[in-house]
Design a protein around this nucleic acid. Structure first.
Lengths: 335, 335
DNA sequence: CTGAAAGCGCTTACAG
DNA sequence: CTGAAAGCGCTTACAG
């Protein structure tokens, strides 16, 4: 409302007695300006307190230097960690994050709507963390030339990059750890049923179990939520013939499971039941839990994401990247 | 790089056989367009897949509908919760969040630099969560007409709004709860020494203690970090004559304190020592902790922030708001 | 209600 | 290396 004073490029040009082109060039890294000219411009700019208007620049260059980031919910500490790293990495490259929180339980159509919204800001790229878009919109983005990378989700969409962990391997590792610990009645608490992470982790678990001549003892879904996991734990461990080990699809749920097991069902971990999670969120290391888990390489995933983004921004014809980061077992006390 | 197809307003105008003004108006809520005209435009727009370019719009209207949000670090779950709520509330008003993560241990000058950076995007407002800016920059923002609200910090800067909790009252409540529980050797674990939250909470604690004829038994600083709090707990509780109760300046640290007290020092909570925190982050309610704490009204604070922002955007001469939300005691098992 | 025109603050071929 | 000029995609008085 009160855009009181806003110094523009032409005011600087006027004061410095040069053309607007000269001013523009001195603020464009790598443009050719004579040292003397640059100096005059800088002085005038400093005197006036000039700051380039990124919006105007975006309008002409078609590069906003902003990346839209959509994330579904921040309860799971994995995402705050990722967002922090991602934001900082992007800042280092001169980019900024336009953040978008989707309500979580939205249909693909809703997400599409929101995405259209952020697209209007001419974002240079899009990263969707734990969220998926429709194939229609994916095509739209591709047509518009804005690269999208799915973070921690993989969906075979044309032109959509994806960065994820080796969830199948992780599932196998979890199975392996449980088996080694002597568990024979192994249960699984699933995440959102149609999430690729969920599907792959379960797949790995079951594959390894079969190799060992075992089959899944029990299964319940926790929807990747704290409460969902509590409920799953109750149904799985409430009866007489209970599992002696459980793989929980992510740490956020695993912590909930540990809480319920101990405080509601009076079971000891790992003596009565071994539990293993996935992610290695900061809380897993807290002594109250000491959760054994499969670590996702958050830093590596973020770096890969940024790399794909930067490449795509500079060369349109980048072929689609599907990056799969290795995971590793972090042994602590819950198994 | 590959801005393949981008439908513009004038293409729509051409197809619809109307002026660009007409198109612009049909996409401006509340502008006067004849129903028939609007219909023609809508059809053309739909056919072409037209989406208004928010950047171009911003350049002419001087309103970007984006709010810059700066937050120092997301380890403390209070902030992810706040960001989620804030982002959603803003979205409801048609605004978006340009997120900025500052490294945490930055000087005011660094924050200033980063802010100038986000200012270039012509943000309509700024919210600084757990971060402060220099008075020089505060004036700059004021001069530029962009309202800034300090979230969870209060600093007497000209023209800067602030939304915070009644930290003094909270400190008193904490003292009160500890006293009622029979504690007489009450310690305090401080946050970042120059944060207003830290100062006020301590102030309230000490005031109430004095009224009860007590003085602070011991004190250590935890810097609002998990590790810092662990160290503080060690020095405070490592000796023979230890406190029987402790007020920790925020939950994030309180959880760390509980962890060290129990797993390292073998102390029982609350039998050996009562602990109380501040914030009421989701984890405080987890059975492993069941932390008694002073709750900040995150939703109320966010709503107030959005309200101040929306008012400021629409009327430049809004007088400075210093909003202080009440807090309340949440009783759980740690006291 | 509608259109022609100017302008928002920058960048970028194009000549020189 | 430098400047004049056109243009990025929209909005908004101003006339009609």
């Amino acid at each position: 409302m009160s855009q009181i004073k806003t110094v523009t490029l032409s005011e600087v040009a006027q004061l410095a007695q040069v053309s607007t082109s000269a001013v523009s060039r001195t603020f464009t890294p790598g443009a050719s300006v004579a040292p003397a000219t640059r100096e005059k411009v800088m002085q005038a700019a400093r005197k006036l307190g000039y700051r380039p208007n990124a919006i105007a620049r975006t309008l002409t260059t078609k590069r906003s230097r902003i990346i839209g980031v959509v994330v579904s919910y921040l309860q799971n500490q994995f995402y705050p960690v990722v967002i922090e790293k991602l934001s900082q990495a992007l800042q280092r490259h001169g980019y900024h994050v336009l953040l978008f929180i989707s309500d979580g339980h939205e249909t693909g159509a809703d997400v599409d709507d929101q995405l259209m919204d952020v697209m209007q800001y001419q974002v240079d790229g899009l990263v969707l963390a734990s969220v998926t878009l429709s194939s229609a919109l994916a095509q739209g983005c591709q047509a518009a030339g804005v690269p999208v990378v799915l973070f921690n989700r993989v969906v075979p969409l044309e032109g959509v990059h994806a960065v994820a962990s080796d969830n199948v391997a992780g599932g196998r590792m979890a199975a392996q750890a449980l088996i080694e610990a002597g568990c024979r009645k192994i249960a699984y608490i699933a995440g959102l049923e149609d999430a690729s992470t969920q599907i792959e982790r379960e797949q790995g678990l079951i594959a390894r179990l079969q190799e060992a001549g075992l089959s899944l003892f029990a299964r319940a879904s926790g929807d990747y939520s704290y409460q969902g996991a509590c409920n799953a734990a109750r149904t799985l461990f409430g009866g007489k013939n209970r599992p002696d080990g459980v793989f929980v699809a992510n740490d956020h749920m695993a912590l909930a499971v540990m809480d319920t097991l101990r405080s509601e069902l009076n079971l000891r971990i790992p003596e009565d039941v071994a539990v293993i999670g996935f992610d290695n969120v900061p809380q897993s290391a807290w002594p109250a839990y000491a959760l054994t888990t499969i670590e996702q390489d958050a830093t590596g995933m973020v770096d890969a994401t940024v790399e794909v983004l930067m490449k795509s921004v500079n060369q349109s014809d980048l072929s689609v990247c599907r990056i799969v980061k290795p995971v590793r077992l972090i042994r602590r006390g819950s198994i």
